[in-house]
Design a binder for these strands. Structure first.
Lengths: 216, 216
DNA sequence: CGGCTATGGATATTTTTTTATCAATACTGC
DNA sequence: GCAGTATTGATAAAAAAATATCCATAGCCG
C-alpha cells in the first residue's frame, strides 16, 4: 500500500487553487501568506507549510508568484493533465455531480454516465449520454477511462466497483455509503457525507455545553 | 474556541452506526471488533479505539452489545434528538440533499428550503416548500431552527451565512466553495468536495509511480 | 545608505493520531 | 473443571500534524 502524507494539507489545496485562479484572473501576480490565511481563516504558518509541501518556493520579504503557486499545486495534485471519468448512478446526487462545472478546474472530465433505469438510458444528463450499466466494463475499457465515480445505492456499489475494476479503472471516487473492496492496484476514495454532519454535531454540542456552563 | 478531538474517528462513527442499525434489524445482538473491522476495511485496533471514544464499554472475550453501541454513538453525536434545519439554495446539489432520505437516521430533519429563483419559490422539492431567501432570517427565527445548510454558489454564501446567523442558527453546514466568517458562538462545517478528489489524485499518482518503478 | 517592517524557510517543540503490546476476562470443547 | 482461544481495555510507543521560534532576505521610507 502506498503511503500518502499530510492528508489535511491535500484537502486544503483545492481551496487555495480556486482562490489563486481568481487572483490570476484579476491580474494579481504576487501573493503573501497572510492574505491567503485571512481568506482561508487559517493561521499563516499553516498556509506556509501547505504551500511548502507542494515544493514551491517563495521570496522572503515578498511572497509567492501566483502563477508559480498555481502550477505547483496543479502539478502536485496531478491536475495538470485532465483525466477522464465515468459516473455510475444518475440519481439526484449523480445528476448534481454531472451538473457541477467546477471539476474541469480540478483536472477531471466526466465523459459518460451509466444507470439501470430504462427511462434514463439513451438520454443525456447535463450533456453526458447515459448508458446501461450492463455495458459499464466494456465501454470503460474501450474508452480507456481510468477513473470511476460511484453514486449508486450502497447495496449495488460493490458490484459496480467490480465492474469498474474489470473495465480497467485505477481510481474510484465512492459516494455510496459503504466501504469497498478492490485490488491493491486500485485506489478508492470514499466520500462520507454524514461524516461532516457528525463533526458538525460534535462541535455544536461542545460549543453549546461551553456556552451554557459560562452563563451559569 | 471549543476543542474537539479525534476528528477522523468522528467521521467514521456514522458508518458504524449504519452497519449497527442493519445488524439490529437482522436481530444480531452482539458484535465483536474484528467483524466491524472487516466491514469497514480497517484494522481492529482502530475500531476498538473509535468505539471506546464514545464511552461505551464491551465485554472482554465477547464483544459489544449492538443496542448499547448504537445508543452510545447516537448520544456521542447528539443524534438522539432530531434537530431541524433549513436548506438554502435549491439547485442541483441542494435538491440532491433534500432528496436524500438517510438524514433522519443521522438526527437531521430539513424543514424548509430557500432560493432566489422565482420559478422555484412556492413550489415544493421533495416535499419541502421553497421560500424566498429574503425571508430566510425571519422564518428561521420564527421556526426556531438552529441549523442551516448552504448550497448556494460561493459568491452568495457569506451573505446567506450572515442571514442564518441573524436568524439564530447555531450551526452551518457549508457546501459552498468558500470559507465563511461567523461569530464565535456559531459553528461552521465546510464540505470541500474537491478535497476528496485531491486526495484521490495524490494517492493515485503515488500508486502509479510505485507500480511503474516496480515493473522497471 | 541605514534602520524598520514584512515575509519565507529552517528548525524545534508540542499536540494529536495511529499503532503496538500485554494483562484480564469469558466462551468453547474436551 | 481445565486448557485453549478470542476478545476487550489499559498502557506504551511510534508516527504524523500542528504550532512556535528564530534567522535571513527584500522592500520601504527617511
Amino acid at each position: 500500500m502506498s503511503k500518502v502524507q499530510k492528508l489535511p494539507t491535500i484537502r486544503r489545496l483545492p481551496t487555495y487553487l480556486h482562490k489563486l485562479n481568481e487572483m490570476r484572473k484579476s491580474g494579481i501576480e504576487i501573493v503573501a501568506t497572510p492574505e491567503l490565511a485571512r481568506y482561508m481563516h487559517l493561521e499563516a504558518i499553516v498556509v506556509r507549510k501547505d504551500l511548502a509541501s507542494t515544493g514551491v518556493t517563495g521570496q522572503p520579504g515578498v511572497g509567492y508568484k501566483v502563477a508559480e503557486l498555481i502550477d505547483a499545486i496543479r502539478a502536485f495534485l496531478s491536475w495538470d493533465n485532465t483525466s477522464e471519468a465515468v459516473l455510475v448512478g444518475a440519481g439526484s446526487l449523480g445528476s448534481a455531480i454531472l451538473g457541477y462545472e467546477g471539476f474541469e478546474e480540478y483536472g477531471l472530465r466526466i465523459i459518460a454516465a451509466f444507470d439501470t433505469d430504462p427511462a434514463k438510458i439513451g438520454r443525456t444528463i447535463h450533456d453526458r449520454e447515459v448508458f446501461p450499466v450492463s455495458r459499464l466494463a466494456e465501454l470503460t475499457r474501450r474508452m480507456r477511462i481510468h477513473m470511476g465515480i460511484i453514486c449508486v445505492p450502497a447495496e449495488y456499489a460493490q458490484k459496480v466497483a467490480d465492474e469498474l475494476v474489470e473495465g480497467g479503472v485505477w481510481g474510484i471516487w465512492n459516494f455510496a455509503n459503504v466501504s469497498l473492496k478492490v485490488p491493491d492496484n486500485v485506489v478508492v476514495q470514499r466520500e462520507v457525507i454524514a461524516g461532516g454532519l457528525a463533526v458538525l454535531s460534535v462541535k455544536l454540542t461542545a460549543l453549546r455545553r461551553e456556552l451554557n456552563s459560562e452563563s451559569e
